[in-house]
Amino acid sequence: MRERRSLASTFAGYFVLIFFALVFLYPFVLQIGNAFKTEPDAARDPLSPIPHPFSTSGYERVFGSTDFPLWLGNSLLVTVVVTVGRVLLDSMAGYALARLRFRGRRALFGAIIAVLAVPGVVLFIPKFLVLNQLGLYNSYTALILPVIADAAGVFIMKQFFESIPVSVEEAARIDGAGVFRTYWSVVLPMARPALLTLTIISFQGTWNEFPHTLVAVQNPELFTLPRGLADLVSGSLGKGTQYPLKLGAAVLATIPVAVIFVIFQRYFVRGANEGVEKG
């Protein structure tokens, strides 16, 4: 009796899991399938994941008739610079807040926690105002500088440095290494898991960033992938729905994060759960 019930519940469990796995993944299957269709085929039979006939014209037009290569270049540049900057600056600040004893440290940490609580959408217009006032609006600097350090990253790094033993650093300090030297050649190598988590969440966050680009630039030469994609959808393509093209561009924009997700899944999981400790 008991066995039969547990068999039934195992079956029910798998049923729910598979149903939701389909709900969560099948849209991506449809997206990829329809991106390889001709436009009439995608309009007539969107529900089928198999293109009939198979066509790469959507992708050809992504590269031929949109500024996709430009957006890709901009996204790569901005993402790499911001990620490197965040990893370096956030870990330095996190280390100082965790380990160095200096006047104002507590107040500073309080301020960073307060900053974490400021909702992003509230800053749209304010960010534009400051970029405009400083003459940075419509520049790569506007895309990069305001987001090159973030309070959440500082918080993650501080938590991490507090979790590792202080003895190794003390040994280095006794040997006469300066603060920066100790940080660079002793502390950072120990911090590899945290640095990797920060790298990955920074990459993903910056690659997908949309609203900041709205208030930082207006010049199409400076569009990143999400911005360019949003522009395509809001009608810069002209007539027709052109779903194969749009879906294809969206697939290409998703691939880098998808690849990193598959390889570094556990770091994503760790990154998501840092939020738990934040609360």
């Binding site: 991506f28 449809l30 993903q204 949003a230 994060v257």
Partner: peptide
């Protein structure tokens, strides 16, 4: 983890 814009297109 995917882009909000790309997903909105889908």
């Amino acid at each position: 983890v995917t882009s909000s814009v790309a997903i909105s297109v889908v």
